[in-house]
């Protein structure tokens, strides 16, 4: 094209035009609010609601005032427990289910797949309500079921005890969301060409060996994605705990995580007034924690994984 060559590299207007809608919308609704919320974390409101600049004052309060730091560290450590339970229970079960589903001899796999994915599509409020009914010590079905198998002595009001509430809620969340890792891993397993597994079987490998030696290394990148999704979702979690335990995340803050802590600080709770400045500070910390986690993950894990093309 002589015209193009003559003018050198013409400015690619069409690219700008094509990118503009996404960039504008994303900037307006994601980047700007994020930056503005970071800005607000350096301010504090007075009685009349007017903001004044306090520099890192809010962060100092959050970390060095015991009234704030105790709640913050408690919420953060509870959040890590929530994450650990998802990593140790949800993702292995997701992997197991996906592996079973992808076995060539399974019948009715679509029914299983749909059934196991159903809870994921339901509203958290419904999930919270249903599980509270099941586990309810007054009219729940859990106790009756334990009675049938002779284990009624093990029944406890799990959602109400400091020692068990967080684990119970984590497991409810696992039950709801196990469909997501299952589907992602299942899709990855389907992508593996049959020649590879067939060749291995001809070479004398059994299904167990095929899975761990051939399939597992090939789906590692997907497991990485699943981990990072779990991490981000857990550190942004809020709704299930709010639906089951309310904003004060009891008993004695045993189920308080970053999301509920942030909610109380920003919006206030009962007689506690909300605070824009401190709320933005907590939100900024959540952002930093998630960002750090994602960066570590990308540099330490994801870059070392090989992508295979078939």
């Amino acid at each position: 094209m002589p015209g193009f060559a003559k003018s050198g590299k013409r400015f690619p207007t069409h690219i700008v035009v094509f990118l503009a809608p996404a960039v504008i919308v994303y900037t307006l609704f994601m980047i700007y609010p994020l930056l503005d919320s970071l800005r607000v974390s350096f301010y504090t409101p007075d009685d009349t609601g007017a903001l004044s600049f306090v520099g890192l004052g809010n962060y100092e309060t959050l970390f060095f005032d015991e009234n704030w730091s105790k709640g913050f560290w408690n919420a953060l450590s509870n959040n890590f427990i929530l994450f650990a339970i998802h990593m140790l229970v949800q993702n292995p079960i997701g992997l197991l289910l996906a592996a079973l589903l992808s076995l060539p001899t399974v019948r009715g796999r679509n029914i299983y797949r749909t059934a196991m994915f159903l809870p994921t599509m339901m509203s958290v409020v419904i999930i919270g309500f249903v599980w509270q009914l099941i586990l309810n010590p007054l009219w729940g079905v859990a106790e009756t079921l334990l009675d049938i198998i002779g284990m009624v002595d093990y029944f406890q009001p799990w959602l109400g005890q400091e020692s068990t509430a967080l684990v119970t809620i984590s497991l409810i969340s696992v039950w709801q969301f196990v469909g997501i890792p299952m589907m992602l891993i299942y899709a990855a397993l389907l992508n593996i060409p049959e020649e590879l597994t067939e060749a291995a079987i001809i070479d004398g490998a059994n299904h167990w060996q095929v899975f761990w030696r051939i399939k597992f290394p090939l789906i590692l990148p997907t497991l990485g994605i699943v981990s990072i999704l779990t991490f981000v979702a857990n550190f942004n979690a809020f709704d299930l705990i709010y639906a089951i335990k309310g904003g004060l995340a009891g008993p004695n803050f045993a189920t308080d995580i970053m999301g509920t802590f942030f909610y109380r600080v920003l919006f206030g709770f009962q007689l506690q007034m909300g605070s824009n400045g401190m709320g933005a500070t907590v939100a900024a910390m959540m952002f930093l924690i998630i960002l750090t986690g994602v960066i570590i993950f990308f540099f330490a894990v994801q870059r070392r994984l090989l992508r295979h093309s078939f």
């Binding site: 586990l135 309810n136 010590p137 007054l138 406890q156 009001p157 799990w158 959602l159 109400g160 005890q161």
Partner: peptide, 8 residues
């Protein structure tokens, strides 16, 4: 009530 710790 029985299990009042989880009673809402």
């Amino acid at each position: 009530g029985k299990g009042y710790k989880a009673q809402k």
